[in-house]
């Protein structure tokens, strides 16, 4: 890392949990995300993605466990607050104010505010900065929201479903702005989304939450390198489970298809072995239910 201040991890949590009433929105979440990564935060609805992001930015407090953001617990001081950029779901902005108003607002509220950078980005995308933001398109509003978050020159940027409501072109523009900002300097990003294809281009790390727990938290390249799809005639799985971690097994009358995690090559020649895309890996884990991070549970799914 170029500017070596602080810790080498952007986000560290230990046994982090959040309870609303008797319901756990997030439970026993222990993760570590290195600095400089663009992390995809994925998982089904209600898996605790928003809950996690809100705790990271200090909007809500954990019920259990610990968390460190850029090496320190989120807290109410200007230094912490300006080091973390946050764009909430649905891009909340003051509807009657213009983008320019928002930028001036930000300049009054933050130290080291980069209004010029934000203005030139918005100008390049032809986003009108003098009209009330309520009159802008969804894509333009998202750009204003991202511009505000980036103008803080944050070291960690948290984005909650930023592209969900955007058309493909606006989505591409949004992600381009984001990746350019990452290329510009020491910036870690975590963004949640359901659009795995977008995430796969933009992200190099993935955090999967499912059933309120963290199922995967690692570099996408490592994930792709360690997972394979095995296809072969139907057989008993006890043997293979000794040497491999079966993430998901699909058995038909004649065939067995396995998503496995393996550290070395699979030697058994009776399997046809193929590489697996990120989406299939994630879907494989999502079908899992309660598997602790790095756990070894063999879900067996019988298909007629």
């Amino acid at each position: 890392m170029a500017s070596g201040s602080g810790s080498t991890t952007a986000i560290t949590t230990k046994g982090l949990g959040k309870r609303y009433g008797s319901l756990w929105a997030l439970q026993d979440c222990t993760i570590s995300v290195p600095r400089g990564r663009v992390t995809a935060l994925v998982g089904p609805n209600g898996a605790g993605k928003t809950t996690l992001l809100r705790m990271l930015v200090g909007l809500s407090r954990p019920s259990t466990g610990e968390l460190a953001v850029l090496g320190r617990a989120p807290r109410q001081d200007p230094e912490f607050l300006s080091s973390v950029g946050y764009l909430a779901q649905d891009v909340p902005l003051y509807p009657r104010l213009s983008a320019e108003d928002h930028l001036r607002l930000g300049a009054h509220l933050n130290e080291g505010w980069d209004a010029d950078g934000a203005r030139s980005r918005l100008a390049a995308l032809h986003v009108p900065t003098d009209r009330p933001v309520a009159t802008l398109s969804g894509g333009q509003r998202a750009q204003v929201g991202l511009g505000l978050a980036l103008a803080k020159r944050p070291r960690l940027l948290l984005l909650d479903e930023p592209v969900a409501a955007l058309d493909p072109l606006a989505r591409r523009e949004f992600l381009t702005t984001l990746t350019e900002a990452v290329a510009d300097g020491d910036l870690s990003v975590m963004l949640s989304s359901h659009l795995l294809h977008d995430l796969e281009r933009v992200c190099d790390h993935v955090l999967l939450l499912s059933s309120s727990r963290a199922q995967i938290c690692e570099d996408i390249d490592d994930l792709l390198a360690s997972h394979r799809m095995l296809l072969g005639r139907r057989r008993d799985l006890t043997d293979i489970e000794r040497s491999l971690t079966v993430i998901k097994a699909t058995q038909t009358e004649r065939q067995t298809r396995l998503l496995v995690r393996c550290d070395g090559p699979v030697l058994d020649p009776s399997w046809e072995i193929t590489e697996v895309g990120l989406e299939d890996i994630i879907l494989g884990y999502m079908g899992q239910g309660d598997v602790p991070l790095g756990g070894h549970l063999n879900a067996l799914e019988e298909v007629r």
């Binding site: 381009t176 990746t179 990452v182």
Partner: peptide, 18 residues
């Protein structure tokens, strides 16, 4: 440059660097 690639195809700069 990394930035040019990123601006063109919106991918993670770390990927290009790698």
């Amino acid at each position: 440059t990394v930035k040019e690639v990123v601006a063109e195809v919106a991918i993670n700069p770390n990927t290009v660097m790698k």
